[in-house]
């Protein structure tokens, strides 16, 4: 086989092998394959992404939050607030009309609303405003 043809064959085979690897990677990341996903992270790993409930919850509660309100988004572990930054940063992007504060602001009672992903939390001075399978929204009581 002439060298030229051999090279083209190698390139074509390499491309096909890469395409097979892409299809494999996509298939590992799970069904549904032909439906628009609910979030941009629905299939990035083979199980549920830890931020998916947060993205859904933030979308749910966004209409209930007044523009400019101070909000925190936390992911409590056994009822305790952690300093996990992923939820805070995600909320900054998804609640652009609010002042999103880090988890430490919840402990200092500096926020008007607390979004708790997954678990409920006991927050003195706050009451629950919304509840769904993705989490809870609390509002500071006067």
């Amino acid at each position: 086989m002439p060298r030229e043809r051999a090279q083209q064959l190698v390139v074509a085979l390499a491309t096909l092998a890469c395409c097979a690897a892409i299809v494999r990677a996509y298939s590992i990341r799970g069904a549904p394959y032909f439906r628009k996903p609910e979030t941009v992270i629905d299939h990035v790993i083979d199980s549920e992404h830890h931020l998916r409930p947060a993205v859904l919850l933030l979308r749910e509660v966004a209409p209930a939050l007044p523009t400019g309100a101070k909000v925190a988004c936390v992911r409590p572990v056994k009822g305790a607030i952690t300093d996990e930054t992923d939820y805070f940063l995600t909320a900054v992007g998804l609640l652009p009309r609010n002042k999103v504060r880090p988890p430490s602001a919840v402990r200092a009672s500096e926020v008007d609303y607390v979004i708790s992903v997954g678990e409920p939390i006991v927050l003195p001075g706050y009451e629950m405003l919304h509840q769904s399978q993705n989490g809870f929204l609390y509002i500071r009581t006067p």
Partner: peptide
């Protein structure tokens, strides 16, 4: 389109 190759940094800083 089916959210299989999304970068987490989109949520953390490129998006915000």
């Amino acid at each position: 389109y089916t959210a299989r190759i999304t970068c987490a940094d989109l949520l953390f800083f490129w998006g915000p």
